[in-house]
Design a binder for these strands. Sequence first.
DNA 1: TCAACATTTGAACAACTGTTCATATGTTGA
DNA 2: TCAACATATGAACAGTTGTTCAAATGTTGA
Lengths: 119, 119
Amino acid sequence: MSVEHDDLCSVQCIHEEKVAATIELMPSEDITQALAHIFKTLSDNSRIKILFALKHNELCVCDLAAVTGSSESSVSHHLRLLRADKLVKYRREGKVVYYSLADEHVEKIFEQGLGHVTE
Amino acid sequence: MSVEHDDLCSVQCIHEEKVAATIELMPSEDITQALAHIFKTLSDNSRIKILFALKHNELCVCDLAAVTGSSESSVSHHLRLLRADKLVKYRREGKVVYYSLADEHVEKIFEQGLGHVTE
DNA sequence: TCAACATTTGAACAACTGTTCATATGTTGA
DNA sequence: TCAACATATGAACAGTTGTTCAAATGTTGA
């Protein structure tokens, strides 16, 4: 009764000024969610492989399945997510759809990621 | 019987040379997995907020809970993942543990990510 | 028009993830 | 030593995700 969980307990060790100042500098919820979302799209091994495969060539779904060692259906599902986040673009040539990287951002993000991984 | 799924069907549209050349240029499984792993760690909104909060100050778990609006337990679980990937470091001062960014890689990765998001 | 094929889509399932709650660990000051 | 507190940890639960299988689109050449 005397010690409620939200009123006292969790306020005891807080550095108020620092917290207030930090909150001021925080980006909006929209931005943090957008960042989390793009990293989520990049957080799957199959999708990483697809993006690496597209680094030098445009490739069709069949090719990507062969390169990454997954089924065409699986690749297609992944490509849908990559398309939704504008990480890849595509063009149709007859029955075949060729995918390629949307821009060079992906490669730069990868470089930074690799920089952290291999340090 | 005549048309087996792995023998013929999925080999029909493949551009063999391009596929072979692309496979040559692919990074190792270890590398793609490591990349996927680091992006997975960055793919959660709470963890993104924690890292942004640590951009200017070192902060204790309580502070981080207040800034991010989550429970201390939740923050602590997230910090464990961030520690495991060497994205944050920490120092103990009495009962309080202060966390800070491990290096400037995180910020650079964020910059690239934001570049893609806000374009 | 039709068969063949490349791709996409949807449902279903197991595996994984984030949060909460309860409990444990460490640290301080009395 | 002990209570108080900051943090960490483990189990459990709902929600999400990646894959597979089956079926549906497009698209071409006959």
